[in-house]
Design a protein around this nucleic acid. Structure first.
Lengths: 195, 195
DNA sequence: CTTGTAAAATTATAGTCATAATCCAAAAGT
DNA sequence: ACTTTTGGATTATGACTATAATTTTACAAG
């Protein structure tokens, strides 16, 4: 039953990848160590040789999930000819993304659980958010004129909210309305009050 | 230990109210029947005389949470002189709301857990969302010209996303940037593609 | 005033949870 | 070739889970 160092590292990686998907699908509390290890083809006994605790795995798996998301974003932007808004419409607000939470945006699935977890987990969210913001700022249709990323921040908030709400409702017509209302929008904003 | 019918009803109501707050604070999986009953001044034995199951309580408590939210929205809009945008800025995106999840918006805390629950729970989300949309449509600065509620939908998505992300991050400076970027924004939107 | 009903407490059950000790065998180090 | 190290399996732990049966007791209806 002993594996080579290389195979052990592969196993570890597989656990993190499985966790990054299952946490997104079932929530941090919705899947336990035993289920996670079984889904990775191992038994729970092997867990604590590789990870300090479940909380430590949560931190790692969350970072991995954000890395996957960054790749998905880049690919979607590429498919949209470099237009991040179009990528949002074609990928982020699509029905596949609506229905496959385990492979989708970590923010829409796990952000609201993050406040209950410790710093390493929440720092993964800091970095994940910053990465996505830079990604959509770099690929925006207008280049980088704004300097502060306020409009990118708003854009991301809107998308995360839209996907979360569309997934939450029971009425699929309402879900579609929520997605559709957020498609094809180019936001021109104005600050009111406070210069 | 036997209570009058009236007191029993009060107890039941108290359990629903406690649950509506604790679920928002700890998540549906983060608090159990025993903890919920203890926090309501009862023991777990009393639970199944009043509720069919935990899932049934989740549905009721979620509806109650949305009812509380509607009241909070109305009060915030009133305080903002009837301007829903201003109410969003002064209440929804405020630091008290950021730090008190148990009394805050149900969408920002529980929407991403809803897809894992059964229809009665998700129907509570349908109704909660519809109520809020009508509330901010009725009180908008421009009246009701748009007819479809697309811009209200986008507004709500943006707010929910902003609060979720601001709560998730570890860096409080980033949290403040997320909130601030979403304050004082009057959105003028344009549909691109598709008439 | 008695009696049946029902609310709440006590207690039980069977499952799952995170964590960990023990053991085995094969890889790594010498 | 021999010893040490270590990844994984097995098994155990004690706490916590949702659910439920039983018991107690006070109120409500007769």
């Amino acid at each position: 039953m002993r594996m080579s160092r290389q195979e052990a590292a592969k196993n570890r990686e597989r656990v993190v990848n499985t966790a990054s998907k299952m946490f997104r699908e079932f929530g941090y509390d919705g899947i336990g160590i035993a289920g996670l290890m079984k889904a990775s083809g191992l038994t729970n006994g092997a867990f604590y040789k590789q990870f300090e605790s479940k909380e430590a795995l949560i931190a790692e798996a969350t970072a991995q999930a954000f890395a996957d998301n960054a790749t998905a974003w880049r690919k979607a932007v590429e498919n949209a000819g470099g237009d991040a808004l179009k990528a949002a419409e074609q990928w982020y607000l699509s029905e596949p993304h609506l229905n496959h939470r385990g492979l989708g945006c970590t923010l829409a699935t796990l952000a609201s659980e993050a406040p209950r977890h410790d710093e390493p987990v929440r720092r993964a969210f800091d970095e994940g958010i910053r990465t996505i913001l830079e990604l959509i700022a770099d690929t925006g249709p207008r280049g980088d004129t704004s300097c502060d990323k306020n409009s990118e921040i708003r854009e991301l908030c809107r998308l995360v909210g839209a996907l979360s709400l569309a997934r939450a409702v029971s009425d699929s017509g309402l879900a579609e309305r929520i997605l559709e209302a957020n498609r094809g929008v180019k936001e021109f904003d104005k600050r009111q009050r406070k210069p």
